[in-house]
Design a protein around this nucleic acid. Sequence first.
DNA 1: CACTCCCGCCAATTA
DNA 2: TAATTGGCGGGAGTG
Length: 909
Amino acid sequence: MEVSVLSLRDLASARPGRRGRAEAAQKENIFDRSRMAPKTPIKNEPIDLSKQKGCTPERNPITPVKIIDKPQADPWTPTANLKMLVSAASPDMRDREKKKELFRPIENSEQNDTPDSLQYDIVDDSTVEEFEKRRPSRKQKSLGLLCQKFLARYPNYPLSTEKTTISLDEVASILGVERRRIYDIVNVLESLHLVSRVAKNQYCWHGRHNLSQTLKKLQEAGELQYGELMTFQHKEQDSDYKFGERKRETVPESQDRPLLDFSEPDCSSASANSRKDKSLRIMSQKFVMLFLVSKTKIVTLDIAAKILIEETQDTVDHSKFKTKVRRLYDIANVLTSLDLIKKVHVTEERGRKPAFKWIGPVEFSGKTETQREACARYQICATGKQRFTRHASFNGAQPCEGTRRKVSSEPNSPRHERQANIVNSDEHCSKMVNLAAVCRQKIEEDTRNNACGTETILNSARNSSVTSPFSLLPLPGDSDFCVNPLPQAAFPVVQAEVPSFSLPAGINSQVPHPSTQAASKTEDGKPALVPSQPFLCFPSSSLFMLCGGLQENNLSETQPTAGDKGNWSAEAQAAVPPALCQKRSSHKCTLPSPPVDDEEPVAKKQNMEQTDLPLSLVVPKKPFESPRTESTPGSGCRSAVHLETYHLDRESPTAPEAGSKDSTKPLDCQEQEKQPQNKDPDEPPPGNEHIPKENASQPFQPQYLYVQPPAGLSSFNFLFSANQAPGAISLPSNQLPSLSVPCVMVPSAALASFPLVCSPSFTSPLSHDGSFPAAASMNFSMSSLASTTPVFISTTAVVTPKVSPTPSVDPSQPAHPALHLSPVLTRSCGAVKLDSPVCVGHPVTLLKLQQPSSAPLTPKSIRPAHHEAFFKTPGSLGDPVTWKKNEGNQTRNASSVQRRLEISGTSAD
DNA sequence: CACTCCCGCCAATTA
DNA sequence: TAATTGGCGGGAGTG
């Protein structure tokens, strides 16, 4: 039976084309089938493969069946099959068939496809042989075509009520292909949430209902991660290579986040690092992100491959590259079938390169919402529920997922975990770290070129910043630092993000540009530290920071008022490294989600804010603001944060007050409340100005730091500066000027230990390098520029060290902020942890984070945490475990930053 | 020859 | 342990 069937099938399938292989393949298939059939089928049912399959494609869930392509065979007689084949064989026929298939997916019905065609074909039979030869041409077998057939089977917009389940086996059999091929399709579809896995051989078809949301999310994530890059790319395109590198750098960071965020893919990676990381799903998301972030909407395969290889910087093994490209073709074929991209060619210096152009939707409405949602998701993830989160996100649209997730979520299944973002995060983080390292290097180089003076500092800063911080850095501080404009400088990635929102072009370009770089460098390196930024870290557990400033501008620009806040956050997020953002979001989500943003309880807000803040701060926003930010972000969470930040800043004076409060929360709250004013932030006259330096010039936000009173530390409180910094800030380029953060806090004793902030200048002195380690951290220079006392941390040094320690400890809230603060800084330091914690927002999360951190507080731990946090996406953040893993994984890359991170990670562990 | 990318081995995961 | 997933890369088809 089977055999006969097979033969039919084969024919039907059209394999004719390749004989040799085909046959072989067929044989194999057959084999498999037989095997399979029994196996799978069994489960489900008895299998009558032959029959089953044929008929309903879906019907049998049973896997095994594949075998027969049943359908075809069944319906038709063998002869028919032959005919079909024949028809296929002839070119014309083929075309027809293809068209039919394509067009008429209808056929969905499996049978139809072939059969129909067959029928036509039949006519031709004359040349059966021919058919055979050609018919099956590769094209016919292409994944794209297969995908079309697959898609034809399901409605683009299924009724919400009805859940369509997809049995892989059935589909495979129906379509007459190996299951393996279906996985390729499903994985890509899953990355876009068009389907979700419900159970073992079962997928749930969601259709395109959620596609726009998914794309939006991806876009947001992509902006963070790749935004800059892409921008550059375009510009740079000429030099693909460069792009690639840049991208890579960035990518790593970004990658993590995005993936994580979204969906499962992330998750998958997480758990296993292994496979999932490389998962086609993740690659698909990243690939899509590249398009969404790309101004031109055109992405060449080689660039995409380079970027996606995150791995390393350079690494790029040729073989790896090739493999990546192969995979990209697979993904591209599916995306093409979805009409999201189309193949084009880009003529470059070298010549013509294959590329793909995004032809799908570009604008996504409801960003805000989405973002929020995203946040929520993230939050979830962060929490630990991550899986759910993911699911949730998916679920949002589709229930199925939920189920799936549930399943998965089930305790421990690895898979679940994988799915869960968390895991992925870790990995991502690691990658990010690497990337960061790379980036840093680059940056450093650039910087050096540009600016020299601060090199050291810068370096350290850079490093830190590089990693995750980027985004952060950019923020106000950056600007400040930069003296220029570059807020983004901090990190490419960040920049990118930012840019995407706000600045796209300029910023982006900057990054790349040397000058900018220089700035950035400064920025970066130092930047982060940057003085501008405001913030810092603290060692103790409690500190945190915040920064504000610049961003504000953005915010303000973007949104004024409350809305602004939100925007901010969004921007921030954007700006911030993806991971951060995500994290944020999650945090936000968590906390915020509901009330969210604005209204959330203070406490929550605080947390969130903190988290966010940093981010926001981070964000760069450069002056430009881009609308995007606004749109994108949307999330309230961020905004809240931002607001707070602002408040702080504004308050700079108040800051002290805050300080008095000791607890951050209160402050935050207050701030928040004040926030309304915030809008002002911009206004803030002074502050803004500083910031403005950057581009925007708008107001800055203040940044602050916050310290929590850690238990240990006891006394801390925090500080902030607010923004005042601006004035202070203005640092010239390299150095970061001090931020103006005005305030600070201090715990008595704690202070001693703490680091605080620093003015940029100071910072520089510090060694920035990664060496901050403890000492550095400890030190803070506190010069304060601002009236208040600002604390400054040198960005670099201080931050790092401090951060790590404290931050980690600090509960999430503070920490995050810190992290955020200067991305760079943060990153270097504890920021990471902070972030995570921050991200956590949640108690839960916090707990996790905290645990690690708290206990020790060690700087190391702290750092790691940050580290992770940064890199990871929110979701990722969520998983503590992941982090740990990450940490572990993270190797210490050379870069100090990385190291730091690693350290922290370890410590965390 | 370069670009595409099919095919299926086989390892990682799951159940 | 068997089945399911899915990474991976050889190498064929196409232009």
